Structures are given as structure tokens and as C-alpha cells.
Computed example of a mutant assay.
Amino acid sequence: MKEMIENTDATVYKTEATGTKNVDVEADARYGLMEIVDRLCNELGTSYKYIILAGIPYHIESRVLAGLRSYSVETVVTFNWRHQQYADISFNNLNQKQWKKSLKTIAKQL
């Protein structure tokens, strides 16, 4: 993820969830997940090419994606290693090795 962020002009919102202090990614701001979703829904006048979610537990991510859909967010991408039915772009169900290889390929293409 760090390489992807560095290769793009991404705005990064980071949650204060368990374990995120160990993630070496510089954030533009830190909010709770629902605050991030609320800001995205309230700032839809702002044009985002993509909203990409990463590192969110699958069951919570499903609810977040369904909520973003109801606000007509144009394109939502998830880098979760399991398929997400509410995402526009999502991996098929992958094992960890396939998933890491795919993420590396994406990072190199950016």
C-alpha cells in the first residue's frame, strides 16, 4: 500500500483501529472509520476518481461499501483479499500469496 500511495497523488485517511500504529503509511488525517465514510458522503461535491479501502475487516467493509453505494459514489475499489459484492473493483477470493503478488503488480503499474 505504501508504494501505491507514493506512486499516486492520493489523499490518505487513516483510522485509529487496532494495529494501525504499526502501519508505516503517512496519513493526511486520522479519523474513525465512520467519520471517514461520513466525510466522503458529505463531500460528494468534491470529485474523487476513486475511493480505495484497505485493511478493513471484511464484514465491516461490506456495510461501508453498501452505504457508499447509496450515496452514488462513482467508483469504489477494495484491496481486500476476498471478493466484495458492493465494490466496483475487487479481487476474487485469493490466498495470501496470490493476493500479495497481485498487490505488487498493481503497485508497479502505477
Rank of each mutant, 00 (worst) to 15 (best):
residue 19 G to V: 00
residue 89 I to P: 00
residue 45 G to I: 11
residue 64 V to A: 00
residue 46 T to I: 14
residue 48 Y to V: 04
residue 50 Y to R: 11
residue 94 L to S: 08
residue 12 V to N: 03
residue 103 L to G: 08
residue 17 A to K: 06
residue 70 S to L: 00
residue 17 A to F: 00
residue 67 G to Y: 00
residue 23 V to L: 15
residue 2 K to L: 05
residue 71 Y to N: 11
residue 88 D to K: 04
residue 51 I to D: 02
residue 101 K to A: 15
residue 77 V to P: 08
residue 59 H to G: 06
residue 35 E to D: 15
residue 81 W to G: 13
residue 39 R to P: 08
residue 38 D to Q: 06
residue 37 V to H: 04
residue 86 Y to F: 13
residue 53 L to C: 14
residue 81 W to C: 07
residue 88 D to C: 09
residue 8 T to V: 02
residue 45 G to E: 15
residue 87 A to Y: 02
residue 87 A to D: 10
residue 87 A to L: 06
residue 110 L to I: 06
residue 92 N to Y: 05
residue 101 K to G: 07
residue 46 T to N: 14
residue 33 L to M: 08
residue 64 V to R: 01
residue 96 Q to R: 13
residue 73 V to T: 13
residue 6 E to Q: 15
residue 74 E to Y: 00
residue 63 R to Q: 12
residue 3 E to C: 04
residue 109 Q to A: 15
residue 19 G to F: 02
residue 91 F to I: 08
residue 48 Y to D: 03
residue 17 A to R: 05
residue 39 R to H: 14
residue 14 K to A: 06
residue 72 S to A: 08
residue 91 F to A: 10
residue 90 S to K: 00
residue 27 A to N: 01
residue 45 G to A: 12
residue 13 Y to W: 15
residue 1 M to K: 11
residue 79 F to S: 09
residue 79 F to V: 13
residue 97 K to Y: 09
residue 73 V to H: 06
residue 46 T to D: 05
residue 22 N to D: 12
residue 15 T to I: 01
residue 7 N to W: 06
residue 76 V to N: 06
residue 9 D to M: 01
